[in-house]
């Protein structure tokens, strides 16, 4: 086997290791929810079909006043 091929295989193996580690370390959506705030910018939520959750009670009251909607309020003990 030539040195060039060996390097290619090494690079490929390294890529697999890095990719696996990234998958392993990256939290699942459930873990993220359990870990704390999930508030995001409205545009981002729109873009990925996710609901908008506020993490500030006063902001929720203001939003409810502005929209006439009731508030669905969750208290989630960390974590």
């Amino acid at each position: 086997m030539t040195q060039g091929k060996l390097n290619t295989i090494k690079l490929f193996m390294l890529g697999i290791v890095v990719w696996s580690a990234a998958i392993f370390i990256s939290p699942t959506s459930e873990h993220r929810a359990a870990a704390g705030p999930v508030t995001q910018q409205p545009e981002a939520a729109q873009a990925n079909d996710r609901l908008i959750w506020l993490d500030n009670y006063e902001a929720a009251l203001n939003e409810a006043r502005a929209t006439g909607k009731p508030i669905f309020l969750e208290f989630r003990c960390w974590p």
Partner: peptide, 24 residues
């Protein structure tokens, strides 16, 4: 997690869109 990440266009998501959602 299932409540927070309810897809917006699912039946539950549509119900939840009638609320201001807040998580403290």
């Amino acid at each position: 997690a299932q409540v927070v990440f309810t897809p917006k266009n699912s039946p539950r998501g549509q119900l939840m869109q009638q609320y201001v959602l807040a998580r403290i």
